[in-house]
Design a protein around this nucleic acid. Structure first.
Lengths: 233, 233
DNA sequence: TAGTGGTCTAGACCACCCT
DNA sequence: GGGTGGTCTAGACCACTAC
């Protein structure tokens, strides 16, 4: 009964996890309500609520009003990806960061970009191509389109001094982001950029950021072979 | 001043996001404390706390006792991956799911497995190889090792009826999970399994689950070409 | 319609850590 | 030392939904 004066929501959460991994409470089973557990643990209902709410958010519990709380039967567990600026990603791995601007043009965006961004065809956008290095080895080849209607200041920026990635994060707030991770065979260009061979398998991170319903930028990151994106929960 | 009787934590959160995207509160800037905002919004401090705490968890704010709350300068944004059983993943995409057991043996695990799982060398483990189909096309080729010390019941299961993935999720609770996503060129075996050609780029999901400090299972999922893992925030 | 979770309040104490 | 966020409480009302 764990009469352990578990007066913090973390300790209550631990106890709940214990009973699930214990199989005291089995998958699919209805577990006691907030009031009952608050009583048992000798704490306020809000404290139990905080513990259980977080477990429900992470997918381990399923809660419905009136129906009560169950141990999730087919838990959709949620893993967290930490999205940070490339410089920080390199430095966190212990590398020395450097970036190079390859190309910078204001031009009409191709239809496959404008349609994904829900912009009119023939919209003028800023197109950037950059290379990010770690210890002087190519790490990421970046191909980016920027919506000038939202980020008009960007035309004045000197991208030899700061990467577009870093400038945008600091100067172009966004509210939403769509991410698609995939694997592709390197094109000839990508292979040259990343100092590898054509058709080598590379990790692709396609990202679109939005502020409200307006697209801010759309970027394709091609990682040098061997990259592993880590996550845990 | 938004005198809009914003009496829910969600509406307060929206207002905070608005002021950040507005640049009313700029990156790095100190924003008013909980008490002050509670006063302004006409709600309890706990309500403001709930709104800001969640924004801090998602990386948009940085909070420290005494120092106050700032708009994150280099926000480490957190995207969420939804990890679900393969059958659900296929069905959610509108496909008809089927799986096939290719191989099942209890044998000594190779060192590259035991060392990752922090198990003794020469530990006997259950090795499984399975194929998951979507609309009768190969979707995932799965290579799995299971720790029999933790999941001893598994030796009795008939994996023609249920995939190891689904059985484990329902019967072997875990507390932690490490995920590594990468891109690799298909080996000859993988190419045959996934009905593609050797060296084709495929998306790899390497996963280890733990219960406390004990490894439960370690699995390598190789997705058929064209797979995209989606996420957003 | 009754029971459950979701949320809000007003107040309180505490841990942390900047000044 | 004092100001800030982190948390807990006891109570309340509401929304949803299984029954």
């Amino acid at each position: 009964m764990s009469k352990s004066k578990g007066h913090s929501w973390q300790s209550i959460q631990q106890e709940i996890i214990l009973r699930i991994t214990n199989r005291t409470w089995q998958p699919g089973e209805l577990i006691p309500g907030e009031a009952k557990l608050a009583n048992e643990f000798g704490c306020a209902r809000a404290t139990v609520n905080r513990a259980m709410r977080q477990l429900a958010e992470s997918g381990l519990l399923e809660r419905r009003r009136k129906a009560g709380t169950r141990v999730a039967l087919n838990p959709v567990r949620k893993a967290v990806l930490h999205i940070q600026i490339t410089r920080q990603e390199v430095e966190k791995r212990g590398g020395v960061y450097r970036h190079a601007l390859l190309d910078r043009q204001i031009k009409t965006a191709p239809p496959y970009i404008t349609s994904r961004l829900r912009l009119d065809q023939n919209t003028e956008m800023l197109h950037l191509r950059e290379l990010h290095f770690s210890d002087n080895h190519p790490f990421i080849y970046e191909d980016r389109w920027v919506n000038l209607d939202v980020v008009s200041d960007i035309v004045k920026v000197d991208f030899d001094k700061i990467s577009s990635n870093e400038w945008l994060v600091n100067n172009a707030p966004f509210s939403n982001c769509d991410i698609a991770l995939s694997a592709e065979n390197a094109s000839k260009t990508e292979a040259e950029m990343l100092a590898t061979t054509e058709n080598k398998s590379i990790f692709i991170n396609d990202r679109i950021t939005w502020i409200g319903v307006s697209p801010v930028t759309c970027v394709r990151l091609a990682y040098a072979p061997g990259y592993r994106m880590l996550s845990s929960f």
